[in-house]
Structures are given as C-alpha cells and as structure tokens.
Amino acid sequence: MVSGKVTVKNPTGLHLRPAGTLCKQAMQFKSSITFHYGDGNTANAKSVLSVLGACVKCGDEIELFCEGEDEEEALQFLVNSIRTGLGEEL
C-alpha cells in the first residue's frame, strides 16, 4: 500500500464535475483507491457518491491510499491530476 497527501485547489472543491473526473481516472487502475479526509473519514475514489459525500472544499488536504498491482502508478497519476485541478482551470 502506498499513500500521498494532496491539497485540493479547485475553487469549488470536489463538486460533481471534478468528482466524476477523479472517479473515471481512478477506475482505470486495478488497485483499490480510497482517500482520507477530515477527522479520519474515508471515501472510495472509484465511487462518485462517495467522493461527493466527502464534501471536500478548496484548500482541504486529502490523503490518497492505493493498494494493488499498479498502486505506485495510480498514486502518482491521481496526486498529479488533483494537484492540477482535475481538468478544471485553477
């Protein structure tokens, strides 16, 4: 298992569009991908409802956890994608 922290920079946080993008990207990997937010809460990065339910706002730090055969690649790709706004202008 590998993990990495990243700060969400999207002005409106992980609302529907970036949450959908995150899920779509996470589903490309075979690894289990979750993230911790707030006070020890966990969300499944492959579930749009789980990501939306996390209510992650701009400036919040999340910690991604990837476990599986492509965990290193998944972590690196997703941290970079979140860091650059998940396709949205920052």
Score class of each variant (00 low, 15 high):
Asn41Gln: 15
Cys58Arg: 12
Thr21Glu: 12
Leu86Glu: 02
Leu75Cys: 02
Ala43Trp: 00
Lys5Phe: 10
Val2Lys: 11
Gln28Lys: 15
Val48Lys: 04
Ile33Met: 05
Cys23Lys: 10
Cys23Asn: 09
Ser50Pro: 07
Gln76Glu: 15
Ala43Cys: 02
Cys58Gly: 11
Asn80Tyr: 02
Gly13His: 04
Tyr37Ile: 00
Asn10Ile: 15
Leu90Asp: 13
Pro11Ile: 07
Lys24Phe: 12
Pro11Thr: 08
Phe35Met: 01
Glu71Ile: 10
Cys66Pro: 06
Ala19Val: 04
Val51Ala: 00
Glu61Cys: 09
Gly38Thr: 04
Glu69Val: 13
Gln25Asn: 14
Gly13Ala: 04
Thr84Val: 12
Lys46Trp: 08
Ala45Met: 04
Pro18Asp: 13
Leu49Cys: 08
Cys58Leu: 07
His15Tyr: 04
Arg83Ala: 14
Thr7Arg: 15
Arg83Met: 10
Val79Leu: 11
Thr34Glu: 11
Leu49Ile: 11
Gly68Ile: 07
Ala74Thr: 08
Asp70Lys: 02
Lys57Val: 01
Phe29Arg: 08
Leu14Tyr: 00
Gln25Ser: 15
Thr12Met: 13
Glu63Arg: 01
Ala54Asn: 03
Thr7Gly: 01
Val8Asn: 05
Asp39Cys: 06
Glu73Gln: 14
Ser32Ile: 12
His36Asn: 14
Thr84Cys: 09
Gly38His: 09
Leu22Ile: 02
Leu22Asn: 08
Asn10Tyr: 02
Ala74Trp: 08
Ser3Lys: 08
Ala19Ser: 15
Glu69Asp: 14
